[in-house]
Simulated scan of single mutants.
Amino acid sequence: MTEDLNKRVEQAAQGITPQTKPDERRRYLGSLRERVYVRMNNTEVKDSKLTALFLQHIADFKKYTILINGNITDDGFLGEVEANCSKYSIPFTLVNNETAKTGPEDSAVLVVAKYAINRPRIEIAQVFAPEIPKSELTAPEKKEGFFHRLFHGDK
């Protein structure tokens, strides 16, 4: 315990501050999971339906900041995101450091807040889920059980 305390004091004297949750920060382009509003991974960026859905709702992100993985080679969608951010005055940042990875499940685009919002679902397909048709929302007909038919007869 005293060794950790001494090490911490030495680092503080040198101006080195330890980073909180480094694994989480690597996954979310330097931000934290608790601040993420919407996330798209590198595979979802190539899906035209999901990119159209993101661009459709981009005006809703005015009070957030958009983090864009700068190591992705898809200039079409990312160029549109940058253009729409400029159009709607949404702050955005291109992240080109070691957190910007290009694996299929790594983050490509994040919409983040400056404070913790703790959303349970952050994936774009979950945040902007398609509407359920009203026909599916109606309750199915209740089937009569054996005893009901026995005592009330077949109708």
Rank of each mutant, 00 (worst) to 15 (best):
P18L: 15
P18D: 13
P18E: 14
T20S: 09
T20N: 08
K21D: 15
P22S: 09
D23R: 04
E24R: 01
R26A: 07
R26N: 10
Y28Q: 01
L29R: 06
L29D: 10
L32W: 03
L32D: 14
E34R: 08
E34V: 01
R35T: 10
Y37H: 12
V38Q: 01
V38K: 04
N42G: 10
D47I: 13
D47P: 05
S48M: 10
S48Q: 12
K49V: 15
T51V: 11
L53E: 13
F54I: 11
L55H: 09
L55F: 00
Q56E: 14
Q56V: 04
H57W: 03
H57N: 15
I58E: 08
A59H: 04
A59W: 00
F61S: 14
K62H: 07
T65C: 09
I68S: 03
I68H: 05
N69T: 14
N69M: 11
N71A: 09
G76S: 07
F77P: 01
E82A: 10
A83L: 09
K87N: 04
Y88M: 04
S89K: 05
I90F: 06
I90M: 11
P91Q: 03
F92R: 11
L94C: 03
V95E: 08
E98M: 02
T99R: 00
T102C: 01
D106N: 10
D106V: 08
D106I: 02
D106E: 15
D106W: 00
S107M: 02
A108H: 09
V109K: 02
V109R: 03
V109D: 09
L110N: 08
A116Q: 11
N118K: 14
R119Y: 05
P120D: 15
R121S: 07
I122S: 12
E123T: 04
E123S: 11
I124D: 12
I124H: 04
I124A: 01
I124Y: 06
A125R: 13
